[in-house]
Write a protein that binds this DNA or RNA. Structure first.
Lengths: 211, 211
DNA sequence: CCTACCGATCGGTAGG
DNA sequence: CCTACCGATCGGTAGG
């Protein structure tokens, strides 16, 4: 009895989270009101506040649950002895795109709305994002140790994230090209491209540039 | 006298546009109020409405002016006989990053806030964006005609735009790596990577996939 | 005294 | 170019 109650409480929280993510993704965090969220979830606004303290709490939970899954994914690949270090980047790209395909609303909220969170909650999420970026940067450094030595592996990781995260702005999930079928293209492009990057002579102003 | 009036009217419009772009970029379109904009520009909210009809008008002007410059840039490269077709993509990447460096606020507004415009104004801007994307896609098709035949040149163009547009989320303009110094990395990565893309067998369900 | 919720409305602020 | 406001709607909370 008490068990069933707790069960449905957590279930209801999850339903609300999904509904809110869908609305925040479509209209933006500030563009979706708590009344909108409540209506989409089939309950009153007052009931909504029974499950989440305030609007920020809703946003923080959506973003943190998603980025925590991504960070967990990075750690599981790093800790998987059956994956050779040289294969990690390849596996990471594929697994991330698969994860993205199932979490489009949450990912959009993570990339567009975290800036509206108060500093403490925002910082907690940025910390998890750093874990993810560092995981990719490290895997890139395995492929190109010279890039890591030049301090460019994180920048290159961000270029890769650009390709992945920008997909939300142009890709139709039900098209011929979706988050899963595009994975080979991204891997082909990025892996081959990684070999083409020349280390520029940055931060050495005395050296004249040759053309 | 009347001349001076008109002159300062347009000047004031431009000052307001820059101030609004800065606020919209930092707090988001819905997060920045018209009072905020007025205060940032050193005038009252009522005065603001003397120069722009409403808040959407401000947003539309920021986005359209920026994307029109980008579309113009594409056309100028396409129409420049001194640039060989095979060099167009290279030139486009460099020129776009230079343009981005000077229009960071406007670009952030274009990529994040256009969704808040009413359909008619939004569609006018999306139309200009299509000109830009088609310009890049065509230049990619020159490098890899088989990609264009497979209908993948636009998707690959969007992957490139992902790298470029995502920079706004992570790059510090005053860092060692800025919009200009990163250009060689992006070009190295993308040009080499372009040669690595294999055409997947999409949209041909009868053909069994070989592993 | 708890939970899960409701209709109604709070103080403030938005765009205009 | 300003002060003084409006209809509406915001996020959040009251009593029951």
């Amino acid at each position: 009895m008490a068990r069933k109650k707790t069960q449905s409480f957590d279930d209801q929280k999850e339903v609300i989270l999904q509904g809110a993510a869908e609305l925040f993704a479509r209209r933006g965090y500030l563009g979706a009101s708590m009344n909108d969220v409540a209506q989409a979830c089939g309950l009153s606004k007052a009931s909504l506040y029974h499950y989440y303290r305030d609007k920020d709490d809703l946003l923080a939970n959506i973003a943190e649950a998603h980025v925590a899954r991504l960070a967990e994914l990075v750690k599981s690949v790093q800790g998987d002895a059956s994956i050779a270090p040289a294969d990690r980047l390849d596996v990471l790209i594929t697994r991330f795109l698969t994860e993205y395909a199932d979490a489009q609303n949450s990912h959009r909220v993570l990339t567009e709305d975290v800036k509206f969170l108060p500093p403490v909650a925002r910082e907690r999420i940025l910390q998890l994002e750093r874990v993810v970026v560092n995981g990719f940067a490290h895997a890139i450094g395995v492929q190109r140790p010279d890039l890591a030595e030049a301090g460019l592996h994180k920048a290159v990781a961000m270029l890769l994230f650009g390709m992945l995260n920008w997909m939300f702005t142009w890709m139709r999930p039900d098209g011929a090209l979706n988050y899963v079928t595009i994975a080979p293209l991204v891997r082909d492009l990025f892996f081959r491209g990684l070999g083409g990057i020349q280390i520029p002579s940055l931060a050495k102003p005395p050296v004249p540039r040759e053309r």
